[in-house]
Amino acid sequence: MLKGSLWWRKTKDLPRLVRLWIEVISKKWARQMFRAHEGLSKEYEVSCDELDFLVENAKKFPEVLGARMMGGGFGGCTINIVKKGFGQQLVDSISPVYKKEFNLELTPIFVKTDNGSELVY
């Protein structure tokens, strides 16, 4: 009876533990994005002032878990991992200072995660 009770409690905790594990791993992965940008900017020297500005300003918000440059060639952009519902607020906060610094308008593209790769018949 006792073993069955322990198994039941552990099984009930499993979804909570999986959610916690995903949250911890996601935060660590997102913070690594800041480090990756630093390397791209300072070591490889493939960033630009505008992208560095966006990443540095995004770091100021605790709702931004990570940010880095991506793309390039024709200007590139930054990808920002933000807490759900904070994207527009981030754009609204950074747009005026970006405009003042570079005399450029931000052009945000909002995306959401999906199921990822899957087989479609």
Rank of each mutant, 00 (worst) to 15 (best):
K28C: 06
I109Y: 14
D92G: 08
G71P: 00
Y98R: 06
E101D: 05
S117V: 05
V82R: 02
N80C: 03
E101A: 05
F74C: 06
N57E: 11
L65G: 04
V91P: 04
V18A: 05
V46M: 00
P108D: 01
L14M: 07
K12D: 08
P96R: 05
L20H: 06
W21T: 12
I22D: 13
N115Q: 15
V111Y: 09
N115E: 15
L104N: 11
K28S: 12
L104V: 10
I109L: 07
R19N: 08
P108C: 00
A36L: 14
P108R: 00
L17F: 06
L106E: 03
G66S: 01
E23L: 07
L17A: 08
F110Y: 06
K83N: 00
K3L: 09
K27W: 01
G39V: 07
L6A: 10
I22G: 08
F74W: 11
T113A: 13
E38A: 14
C77T: 07
P62W: 01
L14T: 03
R31P: 10
W8D: 12
G116F: 00
K84N: 08
V24H: 11
D49Y: 09
I109H: 08
A30I: 02
G66K: 01
E43Q: 13
R16D: 11
I25Q: 06
Y98S: 07
P15W: 00
S117D: 11
V97S: 15
K100P: 11
W7H: 11
G73A: 00
D52H: 08
T107E: 15
K59I: 06
V111I: 12
D92P: 03
S95Q: 12
K99T: 09
G87Q: 04
F34H: 09
G66V: 00
Q32P: 05
L17W: 01
F34C: 08
D114M: 13
F53L: 14
K59C: 00
E101G: 02
P62T: 02
L51Q: 11
Y44H: 15
D13R: 07
T113K: 07
A36D: 10
S95C: 15
V18N: 02
K27R: 07
G75E: 02
L51V: 09
F74V: 09
S26M: 05
K12S: 10
L119V: 06
W8S: 15
Q32E: 13
L119K: 13
L51H: 02
C48H: 10
W21Q: 13
I94R: 01
Y121T: 15
H37G: 03
K59D: 01
L17S: 07
K59S: 02
K12E: 13
R16N: 12
V91A: 00
